[in-house]
Design a protein around this nucleic acid. Structure first.
Lengths: 153, 153
DNA sequence: CAGCATAAGACAACGGTTTTCATTTGCGGT
DNA sequence: ACCGCAAATGAAAACCGTTGTCTTATGCTG
């Protein structure tokens, strides 16, 4: 079978839109938020298509995926440096890439110790960023950052 | 208000059953598996009650919760030593408690570095245990361990 | 430009979990 | 031991994110 190297990624208005919207965010976003943002921008893309596109992007390693506490998948374009671990503020959604060499090494060692193969790992840090201080005894240090689900402006 | 220290955990047949069933397993189990196992044992407990009980146990820190790749919650009683991290075999469900001091320290340091407060972390290792070697070039070294969803025998 | 495989979109289906609400039941007070 | 009530149970429906189905539309390649 002499398959010519045909384009494995067809360029469509919708995919471009999803990509663009995705890159407008500095935080992890859910498929639904993205769809809503698109719609709010007057761009009509089917929810199904958003899901499909994100799934493709995730499968091809172009975006990172985390799960929030409710089990919802949140997406974010993977930065050039290949970072794969983040600390996510559970108040405003701010996500910071985190130096993860140490965990990688730790995981590798554990895997060897217990005789596990093909070990995959999930490391998720959630907390409150500096702007979203804990509610207890808050000295009113400015308003907390906005919540996720941005207006995609 | 002079509240007598009243039992904040009412003893019921159902809760005892869920607890007992939970402790019969050496692996993480889903609420549904547990419910099925109970039923197979002739113990009738509503699925709702299983969910509720597990939620309570998780909230009070008596069980650990992980999420499988499908987003399903899996539960396991927390051992006395307070371990909270496991390596789970994605083939047979075998779970091994893992020395997690190093991650704890790592998490604490990261939290300090980036200025996050009240940081919570999820560390999940999934792989193939020794009995469930990778399918590629397997030397037929005995059958893989049974899958999860045990018969609660 | 034609043909066709791929993609989009609307909608239904799915699966796990939670809510609802009427009914039952532990448990503390008397 | 009995009462009463808040807490717990359970069946069914609601929920919600996600995926499947199937028809129509549309890039792409020849």
């Amino acid at each position: 079978m002499h398959e010519r190297t045909r384009a494995e990624w067809r360029a469509t208005r919708q995919r471009a839109a999803v990509l663009r919207a995705l890159h407008l965010h500095d935080t992890f976003v859910s498929a639904q938020s993205l769809h809503a943002a698109l719609a709010a921008d007057g761009v009509t893309v089917g929810l199904t298509t958003v899901y499909r596109t994100l799934r493709l992007l995730a499968a091809s390693g172009h975006v990172d995926v985390v799960r929030d506490s409710a089990g919802e998948r949140l997406y974010r374009p993977r930065p050039d440096d290949g970072h794969r671990h983040y600390a996510v503020c559970r108040e405003c959604g701010l996500s910071l890439a985190v130096d993860s060499d140490e965990v990688e090494r730790w995981v590798a060692r554990i895997a060897r110790d217990i005789g596990f193969h093909a070990v995959d790992h999930t490391v998720e840090l959630t907390g409150l960023c500096e702007r979203c201080r804990p509610p207890m005894s808050r000295p009113a240090a400015g308003p907390p950052a906005r919540r996720r689900t941005p207006s995609a402006g």
